[in-house]
Computed example of a mutant assay.
Amino acid sequence: MAYAAATTNATNTITAAAADSNATVAIKVGNVDVVSGAAATWAEGENTVTITVTNGSETKTYTVTVTKS
């Protein structure tokens, strides 16, 4: 699944949570790991955020293109 969002320097916190408490969530901005609820460093223009949710043997990956203006 792919999504898009926009940001500025004032909005740099990424939060992702799974609906199932047994699942784990991994967040990357480009190739940099980011902890859910922590600040991300945005480059000018488009940034690719990958959110991977794993629950047992199932894994789903979501991609968000965040554009910093």
Rank of each mutant, 00 (worst) to 15 (best):
A2R: 12
A2F: 07
Y3I: 08
A5L: 13
T7A: 14
T7S: 14
N9L: 07
A10P: 00
T11I: 08
N12H: 07
N12W: 04
T13P: 01
I14A: 07
I14C: 08
A16R: 01
A17G: 09
A18T: 03
A18F: 01
A19L: 12
A19V: 13
D20A: 00
S21Y: 02
N22M: 06
N22R: 09
A23N: 00
T24C: 06
T24N: 09
V25T: 14
V25K: 00
A26W: 03
I27D: 01
K28Q: 14
K28V: 11
G30I: 10
G30T: 11
G30D: 12
N31K: 14
N31D: 15
N31A: 15
V32L: 10
D33F: 04
V34H: 03
V34I: 15
V35Y: 08
V35N: 15
S36M: 05
G37K: 07
G37Q: 10
A38Y: 05
A38W: 03
A39F: 05
A39W: 05
A39D: 14
A40T: 07
A40G: 11
T41E: 13
W42F: 11
A43I: 06
A43K: 12
E44V: 12
E46S: 13
E46I: 07
N47V: 04
V49W: 01
V49H: 02
V49I: 13
V49K: 01
T50A: 13
T50W: 00
T50P: 00
T50E: 10
I51S: 02
I51A: 02
I51D: 00
T52E: 11
T52L: 04
T52M: 07
T52K: 08
T54K: 05
T54C: 04
G56W: 01
G56A: 07
G56S: 08
S57T: 14
S57M: 09
S57A: 13
E58I: 04
E58R: 02
E58V: 04
T59V: 14
K60M: 05
Y62Q: 11
V64P: 02
V64Y: 10
V64N: 14
V64Q: 10
T65V: 15
V66I: 14
V66G: 03
V66M: 09
T67L: 09
T67N: 12
T67F: 11
K68G: 02
S69C: 02
S69E: 10
